[in-house]
């Protein structure tokens, strides 16, 4: 565990908890894409299948349980909570799941390290995580006016990815056989998706104006 990895995990954790807390306290999910949240729930479910078979560390197990629990709680709030679900803007959040899920599944079946159920599911989760933010980015682009919390949520998620890249560079130099190109390529693609958002986020922060994305 290095400082980049820990900072990345903490940023990821804070992003998810900020979102859950926001939904819980203001009883609104305005600006949040249910599609992205469902994809994340699927990402964690397929990635953490090893929760039942392998033990890595207490830290690892606890974090996995938090990510699983929080992602399913968010989906539950948006779909089932009687007040929260009213604020969900279904008409704007139109991205199709299968449009993302199917290509990732096909890719995972074709490109993986080992052809076992667990390994293919793990690889699928990496590909899926790389693009799961797309419905959220499309929603931000459409609504244009982004409230602070949604902006911070997306910013924290992007920061988490950037920190993971630093972690891989660090591990590559400190651990002799640390070469995981599937993880790296998926991670770099994922981080690049945030580049555009980051640009406007920093602009708005620098000029001290409300974050708006161009149409």
């Amino acid at each position: 565990m290095n400082i980049f990895r820990l900072a990345g995990d903490m940023t990821h954790l804070v992003s998810v908890l900020v979102l859950l807390l926001k939904i819980h306290t203001i009883k609104s999910c305005a600006g949040i894409s249910l599609k992205t949240q469902e994809l994340y729930a699927l990402v964690f479910t397929t990635r953490y299948l090893d929760l039942f078979t392998d033990y890595i560390s207490l830290y690892n197990t606890v974090m996995k349980l938090i990510f699983l629990g929080s992602s399913f709680s968010i989906v539950w709030y948006i779909r089932r909570h009687k007040i929260v679900r009213r604020s969900y803007d279904k008409d704007q959040d139109t991205f199709r799941h299968y449009f993302i899920v199917l290509p990732c599944l096909v890719l995972a079946l074709l490109i993986h390290h080992k052809f076992t159920f667990k390994e293919v599911m793990w690889t699928f989760s990496l590909y899926l995580e790389a693009v799961a933010i797309l419905p959220q980015l499309v929603l931000l682009q459409r609504t244009r006016n982004i409230d602070n919390l949604t902006g911070q949520y997306v910013f924290l998620l992007g920061a988490y990815r950037a920190l993971y890249i630093l972690n891989w560079i660090y591990r590559h130099y400190t651990e002799p056989h640390y070469v995981h190109w599937i993880t790296w390529i998926a991670g770099i693609v994922q981080t690049l998706l945030y580049a555009d958002f980051f640009y406007y986020y920093f602009q708005s922060w620098k000029n001290n104006v409300k974050l708006q994305l161009p149409a």
């Binding site: 990895r5 995990d9 990821h12 090893d50 392998d54 890595i56 560390s57 690892n60 974090m63 996995k64 990510f67 390290h113 080992k114 793990w122 993971y164 972690n167 056989h177 995981h180 993880t183």
Partner: peptide
């Protein structure tokens, strides 16, 4: 090379 990634990342 033997593949031995232990999936220690989240």
């Amino acid at each position: 090379r033997h593949y031995d990634y232990d999936h220690d990342e989240l």
